[in-house]
């Protein structure tokens, strides 16, 4: 049972790590915590579900592309112009991004024929670890989370575009002065963040059910974990995903699944009071 809880916890961590990573990427670049990513992620996952009968790969790719495009254009058309006029008013951005999330939840209801779906991705076989059975798909989720993290790191370290993202997040004014296209960097960061959330939602939908409110779960799980790990701190976020994943998994065994949210938000609360900058400290590095 312990082993089972452990493995389930790690897999859970892999899924929630995706929106956490999304929040961290956006915050690291723009300084705004985007509460819309869950809603946008769910909308994108519904697109994937809608296209699934035609072609699995195509459906997933289009879903991710929709997530990216929405994140990109929301930043370009709304958030960037707004911050130029209103500065970094965090309350305003909390309300605005939450609103955007709600709008996409509403649009999901309007556009797609069903409010509750499952995304039947192929199970990819069964994997047996120390006599615990789990589907290949669940493992894929974990690998995607780790892979996305490593890929982002590599792009930032070794490519010129990635370096210009780091430069933009470290010194926006100088980045503009040297000629970096900083508004595009903001748009791309927002696009990648929403795409990661879309990925999270698609995988969630393939393991559990995806409903209109899953977006809030994704956003708030992502946000809570980001708080625990230190907002914008990617490594902190990943460690916190692991901790929270294990806590969620074991709480289901030890007490009962219905305690999950109490435990989860309790941990976030304690972290906010004891270590307001998270377990590994908050930083704005992408």
């Amino acid at each position: 049972m312990i082993l089972n809880g452990f493995i389930n916890g790690i897999i859970m961590a892999g899924i929630v790590a995706l929106p956490v990573l999304g929040i961290a990427v956006i915050y690291g670049m723009t300084g705004v915590i985007n509460f819309a990513i869950g809603g946008i992620g769910v909308f994108s996952a519904f697109t994937t579900w809608y296209l699934l009968p035609y072609n699995t790969v195509l459906a997933v790719v289009v879903g991710l592309a929709v997530g990216f495009a929405l994140g990109y254009s929301i930043q370009a058309l709304l958030l960037t112009p707004l911050s130029a006029r209103r500065g970094g008013d965090l309350n305003l951005f909390f309300l605005i991004t939450n609103n955007i999330g709600l709008i996409f939840v509403g649009l999901t209801r309007v556009i797609f024929p069903r409010p509750i779906i499952g995304i039947p991705l192929p199970r990819l076989g069964t994997i047996n670890i120390f006599s615990v059975q789990t589907s290949g798909l669940k493992f894929l989720a974990l690998f995607i989370a780790i892979g996305s993290l490593l890929l982002l790191r590599a792009v930032e370290r070794y490519t010129r575009v990635g370096k210009s993202w780091r430069a933009t997040s470290q010194n926006l004014r100088l980045a503009k002065i040297v000629g970096i296209n900083t508004s595009r960097a903001f748009n791309v960061a927002s696009g990648i963040g929403c795409m990661l959330a879309a990925f999270g939602a698609i995988i969630w939908g393939s393991l559990y059910n995806l409903t209109l409110t899953t977006g809030f779960d994704l956003t708030f799980l992502g946000y809570i974990i980001a708080v625990v790990g230190g907002i914008g701190n990617i490594l902190g976020g990943m460690s916190a995903s692991l901790i929270i994943g294990l806590v969620l998994s074991f709480s289901a065994y030890l007490v009962s699944g219905s305690w999950q949210s109490v435990i989860l938000y309790g941990i976030a609360m304690i972290t906010l009071i004891v270590a307001p900058r998270g377990i590994l400290g908050s930083e704005r590095s992408v």
Partner: peptide, 11 residues
């Protein structure tokens, strides 16, 4: 070349 904040500190 600005007077202040003229480098990328973490690079």
């Amino acid at each position: 070349i600005p007077q202040e904040e003229n480098i990328f500190p973490g690079m």
